[in-house]
Design a binder for these strands. Structure first.
Lengths: 366, 366
DNA sequence: ACAGTCGCCTAAACCGGTTTGCTAAACCGG
DNA sequence: CCGGTTTAGCAAACCGGTTTAGGCGACTGT
């Protein structure tokens, strides 16, 4: 009795029209209406036109969910992050990455769905999401979620994680980039450095081979090459944001750490560090050199322009989507791709030779 | 014959298990399985447990699309923009806005789907998207799309557009904010200003009452109050980005325009303007004062810290979602809400009194 | 005149779940 | 011991489309 709409066109509900309504109105079968939209060539031209006209006039549009159900694909891809979206969106790195994802997705006709933990559970969120595949950023390959997602039959591409052969991946040469940065800093004479690491995405584990570990390895190898070491107490991690950079730089200073160079694993942190140092009346690069990582859009525009390790953030997003879609589009036939992109050091104005009066600002430890 | 999987458990496909598989395996009906997941209280406790165990072991998860179809809602909301996502994501304003949207969406258990024109058509994109409602940002209320979306029965909330009574809206006091900014600038003695407007989202029309027009009105009213005018040739529009700000400031300067203050309608443009001015060897605020609009996270961190009109960007996102969900959750029962948020001027370091030697840098026009 | 082909359209099955009656057995008070 | 109420679970309808397998009349070739 709730379905009067199918009998009484006058007392019709505010609901959207269904395919059956169009069919009845046009005096054809549902099949014909479906054909009119999806394969008009299977209908007499004028019939197709007539059906379309009726549909238009009724304001009919195929229900996307119903269509998905039968077509077995949704034409949308998911972007998965282990962090809350609310903490991610104003991260410039993530913004640029999403831009790359969006470029490729738009080009290939896919929509974008962002997936983040729902009530603390990534799986719950995944199970609600209707996507053909997923680009996961900052999710360690060891993460148990990854396996469960694959079991659910959803293709996945991991970005910035250690690659496992079973799924696609896109990564950059973290070690090489970090090596170049530290090597340059060392060549300027710096020996007392402060390293700002990015907090592991999944708070809880030290993440044995996450981004922070890989870049740290690069820094250390470069210093080792000149016979210097970076002790553990000079490595501090914090949130990859301007505020994070300010906070941990201040804390390091207050803890008595002195240094002539800061190696930050993210540009946002580097910018925060510069801010904090300036507030401490230190000049950059006169007293302290700062080098970042990422080369976000803003990097050349801060004062002084930031020396940093460039990584092709947007391209990373694009490549991830392309890698994903090759496996999505031929349902598991194609084997997962692994793409690795290059990094390179970009020298700008925030780095310079170690100050001659360095003893005054640094080297205070034993 | 393609469905052997239902008869031969050995030669089963790589497909994900369906509810029927679980039912068969557990020796119950589909209904029972459904109950086990959705209303376990309708089953004997031990039966529910057993079904759940079988499901787990099979790796069964209810197909989200099928579930959506019957439940008539998707638990996701769309964020609609008339611009390509690829141009939007690294816009800091949009980032902060999305953050607000994400906060509210996450809190209320909704997912997020970004919708941008597909092959140039917003409608095509909308029709592919499975959302319960839409937050549209920067879409003029007059836009024909809006009406069509409403006709499709999708609730919509407009952000930063002139409000129409039929749908919800969230806006800020653009005129008031702009008035405050210009008023302050005028009180510092500035009379020769350059106004940087944001390019209308829909390139094509001058957008009679878009953001640019509203803020310009505020600027002009403030100047009128002190008996000054802002002539049309001192108002230039461009993309709301750092690069955009640099480009149009340079162009204005080359065109011979001279000014002691810049009124930018976005912080990104203001930062670009500062950059361009510094490259012209002008000091800020010594020679030229700059005031922005938005108060993005970066605003206090540029050098000098940017004086700007603060608007609660994140809250705008949150309010939009809440307004949307009140109508989504009681299917059209609630009438659309209209919320208006305040703006206020934040004075930082980029503004100062008009220079005494102003004749040298400005006032060159007749 | 007749079988074969083609063009146009349809009835019914299907996608993978949820929801709505209903039934049969167990329980219950008197 | 009997009618009435729970309890536990099922079959079938349904959500709104797409797709498969034909049906039917007109055309074609012989």
């Amino acid at each position: 009795m709730a379905h009067d709409r199918s009998r009484d066109p006058v007392e019709q509900r505010t609901q959207r029209p269904r395919i059956a309504d169009v069919a009845r109105e046009a005096g054809v079968s549902k099949t014909a209406v479906s054909f009119a939209f999806n394969s008009p060539d299977r209908l007499a031209p004028e019939t197709a036109v007539r059906i379309r006209a009726v549909a238009d006039q009724l304001g009919y549009t195929p229900h996307p969910v119903a269509r998905m159900l039968t077509q077995r694909h949704t034409m949308t891809i998911g972007v998965l992050t282990p962090q809350a979206l609310s903490v991610i969106f104003s991260n410039p790195f993530f913004g640029a990455f999403s831009e790359g994802v969006a470029v490729a997705a738009e080009e290939l006709g896919y929509g974008l769905h962002f997936i983040s933990p729902l009530q603390g559970s990534l799986l719950r969120a995944m199970n609600r999401a209707t996507v053909d595949g997923v680009v996961a950023v900052g999710l360690s390959g060891a993460h148990p979620e990854v396996e469960q997602i694959r079991r659910a039959g959803v293709p996945i591409v991991l970005v910035d994680s250690t690659a496992l052969p079973e799924h696609g991946s896109v990564e950059i040469d973290d070690v090489g980039g970090a090596y170049a940065a530290a090597s340059y800093i060392a060549s300027l004479g710096h020996r007392d450095v402060l390293v700002l690491g990015v907090e592991p995405p999944a708070p809880g584990g030290p993440d044995p081979d996450g981004v922070t570990s890989r870049r740290l390895r690069g820094y250390r190898e470069a210093f080792a090459a000149v016979g210097a070491v970076i002790p553990d107490e000079r490595v501090i991690v914090g949130p990859a944001s301007i505020e994070g950079g300010i906070a941990i730089t201040d804390r390091a200073w207050e803890d008595g750490l002195r240094f002539t160079a800061v190696l930050a694993m993210s540009d946002a942190m580097a910018i925060g560090a510069m801010r904090a140092l300036r507030d401490l009346r230190l000049s950059i690069p006169g007293d302290v050199s700062v080098v970042g990582f990422d080369d976000i859009d803003l990097a050349p525009h801060v004062d002084p322009p930031l020396t940093t390790v460039h990584q092709p953030i947007r391209r990373k997003g694009e490549e991830a989507v392309r890698a994903l879609l090759t496996v999505v589009e031929r349902r598991g036939q194609a084997k997962p791709e692994h793409r690795r992109l290059e990094t390179r050091l970009i020298v700008r104005g925030s780095t310079g030779p170690v100050p001659k009066h360095r003893r005054e600002v640094a080297g205070k430890q034993d």
